[in-house]
């Protein structure tokens, strides 16, 4: 087994030297921030049209993170590309020849890619919040309010974890086409439908993205049966399951 720092350095080189992968991170940041600001501007202008109930539970922090709905797809794309590119290009054969202990290759790749996704996620989260609050004008909040800093960190964590979830699942699915075909529709539509249709709401709320997004909210609207940290823990359990499944597949299948 090669020493871990070498393998981490190698994975860092791999990530930073493929432009397409890096663009997904840039677009995750831009899409999330721009969309968050637009929705914040929109709500600021139409605040008076909201129902009394909506005004009472108005959550300026959560509103500024509205862009994550779309921006997370770019994060998922990043997670998929980092792993699936190894298979679609055949690079996996070079990678496993250099690092034949499969768990080590997986751990190093996930560590480096997740660290990068978390860093971009945090920047995205703070930028979304700060610019979103500017756009919200009189309805804004700030970091010193209770729960707000926790929600901003929670959103950064969410962005990193969703990428890690995608990586774990992609080690199982391998093909980029299959990975995109399964994950993008799921996170873009299916999960939202399941969480918002009354019949499936109870299950839908425990899906990874729905549970994780609980951490983005400051105001408890009473819609969630659990708190922000529990939400993140539920998401973390999903992520752990995805990574474990990926590791089992990588360990046993031929490359």
């Amino acid at each position: 087994m090669s020493p871990m720092p070498r393998v981490l350095l190698s994975e860092w080189t791999k990530i930073r030297t493929v432009r397409a992968t890096l663009w997904t991170l840039v677009s995750a940041l831009l899409v999330t921030v721009v969309l968050g600001v637009l929705i914040s501007v929109l709500l600021n202008n139409t605040f008076d049209d909201l129902s009394r109930e909506d005004r009472a539970t108005f959550d300026p922090t959560f509103i500024s993170f509205s862009g994550t709905q779309l921006g997370q797809l770019a994060m998922i794309a990043f997670g998929i590309l980092v792993v699936a590119n190894e298979y679609s290009t055949g690079m996996i054969r070079s990678s496993l020849s250099a690092v034949p202990v499969r768990g080590q290759l997986l751990a190093a790749k996930l560590a480096v890619a997740t660290a990068l996704a978390l860093a971009v996620g945090m920047v995205t989260s703070f930028a979304s919040f700060l610019l979103g609050q500017l756009a919200l004008g009189d309805h804004r909040t700030d970091l010193s309010e209770p729960g707000v800093l926790r929600a901003v960190f929670g959103t950064g964590l969410y962005m990193g974890l969703i990428a890690l979830f995608a990586m774990g699942l992609t080690w199982v699915l391998r093909s980029p086409l299959l990975s995109f075909g399964v994950q993008i529709p799921f996170f873009f539509m299916i999960s939202n439908i399941l969480a918002n249709v009354p019949a499936t709401e109870k299950i839908g709320q425990y899906l990874p993205d729905q549970a994780g997004s609980r951490a983005m909210a400051v105001v408890d609207t009473g819609d969630w049966p659990y708190g922000p940290w529990t939400g993140l823990l539920i998401m973390l359990a999903w992520v752990a399951a995805a990574v474990l499944a990926g590791w089992l597949v990588l360990r046993h299948r031929d490359a």
């Binding site: 070498r6 080189t13 590119n85 290009t89 690079m91 070079s94 020849s97």
Partner: peptide, 29 residues
């Protein structure tokens, strides 16, 4: 210990030749 040229392609087409070799070199010191 072992150097191999496999028949199937095993290079990412979007990573320069230099960086392809560099990431392999780094993992093995």
């Amino acid at each position: 210990v072992v150097g191999a040229l496999l028949e199937a392609r095993s290079v990412h087409p979007g990573r320069t030749a230099y960086h392809h070799l560099l990431c392999l070199a780094q993992s093995n010191g």
